[in-house]
Simulated scan of single mutants.
Amino acid sequence: MRAHYRAEGLLEEDLAPTPYGQFLRWFEEAVAAGLYEPNAMVVSTADERGRPSSRTVLLKRFDESGFVFFTNHLSRKGREIEVNPYVSLLFPWHAIARQVIVSGRAERVGRDETAAYFRTRPHGSQLGAWASDQSAPLESRAELDRAYRELAARYPETERVPVPPHWGGYRVVARTVEFWQGRENRLHDRLRYVRAGAGPGEGAVWTVERLAP
Score class of each variant (00 low, 15 high):
residue 30 A to N: 02
residue 17 P to E: 09
residue 109 V to S: 03
residue 153 A to N: 08
residue 118 F to P: 10
residue 153 A to V: 06
residue 138 L to R: 04
residue 63 D to Q: 06
residue 148 Y to N: 10
residue 184 E to M: 08
residue 119 R to V: 07
residue 124 G to E: 15
residue 152 A to H: 13
residue 24 L to Q: 15
residue 192 R to M: 08
residue 156 P to S: 03
residue 60 K to N: 05
residue 124 G to C: 09
residue 124 G to S: 12
residue 199 G to S: 06
residue 32 A to E: 15
residue 159 E to M: 12
residue 131 A to M: 01
residue 204 A to D: 00
residue 127 L to G: 06
residue 37 E to Y: 02
residue 121 R to I: 08
residue 42 V to G: 03
residue 111 R to P: 09
residue 116 A to G: 07
residue 66 G to D: 07
residue 200 P to Y: 11
residue 106 A to L: 03
residue 6 R to D: 13
residue 71 T to Y: 01
residue 141 R to F: 08
residue 185 N to H: 11
residue 175 R to V: 05
residue 54 S to L: 00
residue 145 D to R: 14
residue 52 P to I: 14
residue 136 A to S: 13
residue 133 D to K: 15
residue 201 G to A: 11
residue 75 S to G: 11
residue 85 P to A: 07
residue 79 R to E: 13
residue 60 K to V: 00
residue 210 R to W: 02
residue 82 E to A: 15
residue 180 W to G: 05
residue 58 L to Y: 06
residue 128 G to F: 08
residue 180 W to Y: 13
residue 96 I to S: 06
residue 88 S to E: 13
residue 90 L to V: 14
residue 89 L to N: 01
residue 202 E to W: 04
residue 32 A to F: 07
residue 89 L to I: 11
residue 15 L to H: 09
residue 37 E to L: 12
residue 153 A to D: 13
residue 22 Q to E: 15
residue 46 A to N: 03
residue 21 G to R: 09
residue 171 R to F: 01
residue 86 Y to L: 14
residue 202 E to I: 10
residue 10 L to W: 09
residue 184 E to W: 06
residue 179 F to Y: 07
residue 167 W to A: 08
residue 88 S to M: 01
residue 73 H to V: 03
residue 106 A to W: 03
